[in-house]
Nucleic acid binder design. Structure first.
Lengths: 234, 234
DNA sequence: ATTTCGTATATGTATAAATATTTAAAGTCT
DNA sequence: AGACTTTAAATATTTATACATATACGAAAT
């Protein structure tokens, strides 16, 4: 029964505005009263209204243009936000015990397809790391990663037998730019063995390319075990 | 040579802070100077610093706690934001010509698995709509959707022969809450025919549950044609 | 040694009052 | 009519100030 206190916080205003939109009180495509009018209505300052509306616009409900005003979006371009956790965290969040195993780790010249993919000049050295992530003894993810040695020279001294390349990279070069892709691929013989599924089974797959200051750092393919689902609410 | 003008806008501060983080000037896990100190350094008000830091925290670079201060996240929990477009827009963005075809549309009692999934009381009526989305004449997506008639009574008058159920729903009940899941599934015979792939092929699949004010509105499975990739940058 | 409690501190939010910036729309000139 | 200019209306941002709120930390009590 906490209704006595004022409800003029920017959060309250967000709620009220959203409720009016959902109820159809403010129809899609229609113009909202301007900030000053709303400030008067809610008896707060324009600053507070501004923050509420700014965030609702950010969340994809409203469109705001100077002089034109604020209108309700007809086809709300809602954006799904997926938090991309590290494998260890994901496994532990699901109640499993994380285990890591290195499969192979070699230094070599970047194959042509990789050089093309990352826009590398030809003949550059890369570290090729393949590894497995388990939840208990159940395969969780097979990772196939290439790291550009010129971009991360320290990788030559790195030891991936205990710590995964992703965790190592996050420690070494945090704050990179990322392109992330998800797709469905099919398990070839080798992958099927690693993930303990039948050959040809569908595998939820992620591809991640990472840059630091415009320089390509790493390309990774992550193959998830059967039954993996990536979920979000918004 | 635009260096004379002040650079104390919240955007400039964001850039500066991010640069210091990336350069290692402010190490992961380390504490930033507090807002007042930064305000002094940048010769602006605390409000401006607050906005810069608040947004950087929002973007996953910083962690802020009252009294504890602001620190650089060691494993930046960056969030990928995927814009979930309507099929029509997606096809057109890829340069294709969108075409829609209704496969079937029946009213029936919600099957048990659906009632369970949506936490429906038993015996509720639903509309079952199946349809195809094409890019030109190439299959793009097969959609299998269930709409709860009690939640959207207008659906009984809806005609899905020209307009897809998703577009109709967005017009009719925008601003819903959504749970979105992606997974890899395998094409059964029927699906393989619709998508023009071999039986058993991996199919990138989306599942979407939608609520309006806590009431379940619709459950949809969306099966994407071979080669589909969902990409984002951040 | 452990728990409880108080308090100082850093962030969180709001107000009031400006200035800045964009841009829709009206006006002006060919 | 078409192109350019001005104007005014809305949002965008900043300043200065105040108060609110969570909480780390140390002091007091058990």
């Amino acid at each position: 029964m906490t209704q006595s206190t004022e409800n003029t916080s920017y959060k309250d205003i967000k709620k009220t505005v959203l409720a009016r939109i959902r109820s159809g009180d403010w129809q899609p495509d229609s113009l909202l009263p301007n900030e000053s009018e709303l400030a008067t209505e809610f008896s707060c300052t324009r600053t507070t209204v501004n923050r509420a509306l700014r965030e609702l616009a950010e969340e994809g409900y409203l469109e705001r243009r100077r002089k034109a005003g604020t209108r309700v979006l007809s086809a709300p371009q809602r954006q799904a936000r997926f938090t991309i956790p590290m494998v260890r965290d994901e496994v532990e969040a699901l109640g499993g015990t994380y285990r890591y195993a290195l499969v192979s780790c070699d230094q070599k010249t970047a194959p042509d397809w990789l050089a093309a993919r990352l826009a590398l000049s030809p003949g550059r050295d890369v570290m090729h790391v393949r590894c497995m992530h388990y939840s208990g003894n159940t395969p969780f993810q097979y990772e196939d990663r290439w790291i550009v040695t010129d971009s991360v020279p320290q990788v030559k001294q790195a030891n991936f037998s205990e710590i995964g390349p992703n965790e190592w990279l996050i420690q070494t070069v945090p704050f990179t730019n990322v392109e992330l892709t998800f797709l469905a691929s099919r398990a070839d013989v080798a992958l099927a063995d690693f993930l303990d599924v039948a050959e040809g089974e569908p595998v939820f797959t992620g591809e991640r390319i990472t840059w630091l200051e415009g320089r390509p750092v790493t390309f990774a393919k992550m193959y998830f075990a059967a039954g993996y689902r990536m979920t979000t609410q918004f």
